[in-house]
Amino acid sequence: MRMEKGLRAQQILEAKRIKKEEAAKAKLLEAEKRKQEKERSKQEKRDEKRLKKELKLEQRRLELEIAKELKKPNEDMCLADQKPLPELPRIPGLVLSGSTFSNCLIVVQFLRVFGKALGFNGNTDVPDLSILQEGLLNLGDSMAEVQDLLVRLLSAAVCDPGLITGYKAETALGEHLLNVGMNRDNVSEILQIFMEARCGQTELTESLRTKAFQAHTPAQKASALAFLISELACSRRVVSEIDKNTDYMSNLRRDKWMVEGKLSKLRIIYAKKAGKRDTSGGIDLGEEQHASATPTAGYKRRRKGGDSDADVSQSISVGGNPVKSKFPDTSQGPALYAGLSNRAVRPAMSALFYPCSSSKNQEN
């Protein structure tokens, strides 16, 4: 019997041990499954984030490409809305050729923009297109004005940008160009020497050896003036004027960006304050309406001896400010309203609608 009981106890212990081992294995398997599931979910989230990031980057790249394509200039023939060019009438009184007139425009526009830097007076020293055309055609007094303009332009060009280093710029009498007083008589010779020093032998320089400036065709004279303008565009005074204007415009743009940044900040602050004011204003309005309909504070009734009127001291919120006023107690019913005199009603109404005046009266 004892042997059987020992065997049974041993079998029971063995079964319990096996069950415990199976339970432990099951727990281990469950924990491993949970761990695998957790890792798989983490990996799925990482993959999802990576895909979202890739999609955002691709979308951003497409947006940049679209913006870049939109910024590219389109050819006139590639436009969808083709419109016929307007027929421009010819300028009245114009007898010069197209190239000659374009050189005249270059001269006038340059002098109007940079004439002040070169010492020109924009009102008197800069001729208009009609005078310049008449001067090129040797008509009337305009020819003398064009010669004076040539003298001033050539004098400025000889000083700055000047001649090429090493070139012997001397007149027929052996004088250097910088030492020669320039006037209408010798301007043709000095122009020939200057143009030969700057651009070499040309048809115009060869012609200036034997003929005066005013004896040439309007096209040649306009080209000579445009040449002087192109040389003066590289002078130090013109370059410094351009740099000055560029710095001025950059300062204006910087100031504009600063002002726009401040304005944007102020707009954001104002929008936030306006939103808060709208929400708080709606609440205050409801409270005021509720206060005007039914009193919101506790009542402290004080009766005067022999007086049937009930003076009620009530704290009413009007516009967020507490105001002490006399107001009838609605809990007593309509009979109390009927017994009130105008002396008790008027202060309450004035306290509701004119809080500032009522507070001053109370201070007094």
Rank of each mutant, 00 (worst) to 15 (best):
M77C: 08
M77Y: 08
M77K: 08
C78F: 14
D81K: 00
Q82I: 03
Q82V: 01
Q82R: 05
K83W: 06
P84N: 10
P86N: 05
P86E: 10
E87F: 14
E87C: 10
E87I: 15
L88E: 12
L88I: 15
P89I: 04
R90A: 15
R90T: 10
I91N: 13
I91G: 08
P92M: 04
G93R: 03
L94I: 08
S97G: 15
S97C: 07
S97E: 14
G98T: 11
S99A: 11
S99L: 10
S99F: 10
T100M: 06
F101L: 13
S102D: 11
C104E: 02
C104W: 00
V107C: 10
V108S: 11
V108T: 11
V108R: 13
Q109E: 13
F110N: 00
F110C: 03
L111M: 07
L111C: 06
R112D: 11
V113G: 06
G115N: 03
A117Y: 01
N121T: 02
N121M: 03
T124M: 08
D125S: 12
V126F: 06
P127C: 06
P127Y: 01
P127N: 04
P127D: 02
D128I: 03
D128Q: 07
I131Y: 12
L132F: 07
Q133K: 13
Q133G: 09
G135R: 01
G135M: 06
N138G: 04
N138W: 04
N138R: 13
N138V: 11
N138T: 04
L139A: 07
S142A: 15
S142F: 07
V146E: 09
V146Y: 05
Q147S: 14
Q147T: 08
L149M: 06
L150W: 01
V151L: 10
V151G: 06
R152N: 04
L153D: 00
L154Q: 00
A156V: 05
A157Y: 00
D160W: 03
Y167G: 04
Y167H: 12
K168D: 14
A169S: 14
